[in-house]
Amino acid sequence: MKGLVLTIVFLLIFTVYCFANEMLIEAIEKFAVEKFGPEATIVSLHIRSSPSSFDKIQLISHNRSKSFFRFLFKAYREEKFCGYVRIECELAIFANVLVVNRTVRSNEVLSENDVTFQKVNLLALNVEHCTDIDQVVGKIVRKMFRQNEPLDARYLMKPPDVRAGQLLTARMTIGPVVATAQVRAMRDAYIGEKISVRNVSSGVLIEGLLQEDLTVLVIGG
């Protein structure tokens, strides 16, 4: 008889425990979906402290370190506050993103052979991840990426339209006359940017706007 009573008590405790766990999991799943979308999932969950039993919870705060979260819930039993529930868990959104398959140094140009897709937890990243090969191939990296590190779009740039030292044609309009001169670019530049160039014949340094045809329109001309 005593054994039967103990079994019943155990089953009741186990049922209450499972109910409480389900309640907490549902609350965190709701938080994850509302904040990050339906792809968000719980990877791990650990209850740090909790009342022995409760039938209602209220999320009052959370903090985050990348994909790791700490939650603080108020717990209630029969509508009366009975303590706090503290939970640590990891959330994830798994996706295939582009990573480098070798160490790539700053100012290198990426080729298709330099990158590969790898499934990662996006919540663990602090990058603007890339999911399209066209986002990265031919781009110049502006920081070092180590092997298997996800690429960050913030540090990828298209090659400049003009390289330092490149010979260009500068033109200036003076009334009905258009004057041209051969000049040398002093730095890398993109179309639409202001660029400093040096007149090859006179050595004079001038400034102009780089045009789509890669001529330099002298400012003030």
Rank of each mutant, 00 (worst) to 15 (best):
L4S: 14
I8K: 12
L12Q: 11
I13N: 11
V16M: 14
Y17M: 10
F19H: 13
M23R: 06
L24F: 03
F31K: 05
A40V: 07
S44W: 09
R48T: 13
R48H: 08
S52K: 15
K56W: 10
Q58S: 14
L59E: 04
I60M: 09
H62S: 14
S65H: 10
S65C: 08
K66A: 15
F73L: 03
Y76R: 02
Y76L: 08
G83H: 01
V85L: 11
V85A: 05
I87A: 00
I87C: 02
L91W: 02
V97G: 03
V100C: 10
N107E: 12
N107T: 10
E112K: 14
D114N: 07
D114K: 04
K119Q: 15
V120S: 02
V120Q: 06
V127H: 09
C130V: 13
C130N: 05
T131N: 11
G138Q: 06
I140K: 12
I140M: 14
V141Q: 00
R142Q: 12
K143S: 07
R146D: 08
Q147T: 14
Q147W: 03
N148R: 13
E149R: 04
E149A: 08
P150V: 09
D152H: 07
R154I: 08
P159Q: 07
D161G: 08
A164N: 06
A164Q: 14
L168M: 04
A170R: 06
I174T: 09
G175K: 02
V177F: 09
A181G: 05
V183R: 00
M186L: 15
K194H: 12
I195R: 00
I195Q: 01
R198Q: 15
R198C: 13
R198P: 02
V200P: 06
G203F: 12
V204W: 04
L205V: 15
E207F: 10
G208M: 04
L210P: 01
Q211P: 07
I219N: 07
G220H: 04
G221V: 01
